[in-house]
Amino acid sequence: MNALEVRNLSKSFGNIKAVSNASFAVPEHSIFGLIGRNGAGKTTTIRMMMNIYLPDSGEVVFQGVKVGQDFNSRVGYLPEERGLYKKMKVLETLLFFAELKGKSGKAVERKALEYLERFQLSDRKLSKIEDLSKGNQQKVQFITTILHDPDFIILDEPFSGLDPVNTNLLKEIILELKEKGKVIILSTHLMDFAEKMCDHIAMIDKGKVILNGALDEIKSKYSQKNVSLSYQGDISFLKTNPIIEKIMDFGNVTGIRVKEPQHTKELLRLLVENDITVKRFDANEISLNEIFLELAGNDGSVDRKKEVYNV
């Protein structure tokens, strides 16, 4: 069952096509990752989902109905570029944003205090925002996103600028929200995070959705021809071998793609014959990062070739 469907969204600014014909579906009770490099069109897509931008064509459908202001008050949105009123006090800020979503009164205030407690900010509730540290401001911003108990939570690059402790706290809360049956849409360019947290993803590059679906399905589909290798020695002889399609160096691990699934055995044999010390040989394993680079990496292809030669 899909909670939200994005159908053929397009948006141009002047001559620049920011998003073209993007379609994907966000299932109920999932953490959905919208991934892509900076400037790929993630934020523009989210803005269209939030009704901030009007799409040139296409629509966003929520439970069978085109999204509108009604949808907005059921969403908690944490934009990539955060901001709060500097002169307002912490509690006042929280209540203001909740009121904008139509929630006011004692119950919201109680909840606000609960969250402040949880984020260890209860002693700062009467401080002005400008007197808080940057990390604490981010926490306040996050609370404003979820205080009104939204069904949908859209987080645009939520981990940027957070220290490890708060990153963990945030992850914890995101998973907790998922448990509660909320739908979380997470946009990020950090593939590792997306891989660890998301059930479903849509990959955006240059305004187009180039991949979308359940993460495990995607991975198994892409992994059949992939080998993840840790080794010692010189593998440059592989470059000319006809069974090899591509070699990608990721630092500790080298990703090798063969032309057909049955070639993986042949690859292992070649490595042993050529006296390479194999520390790890993982067939059918591919990281999201590898998939991303394979699908969207054509811009940086020159750089990557260089890396391969350096092996």
Partner: peptide, 16 residues
């Protein structure tokens, strides 16, 4: 100022 400190996008997720 609202534009400058980016609060406007947060606001726009609630109001048009």
């Amino acid at each position: 100022q609202e534009k400058n400190n980016r609060i406007v996008e947060v606001l726009l997720s609630s109001v048009n």
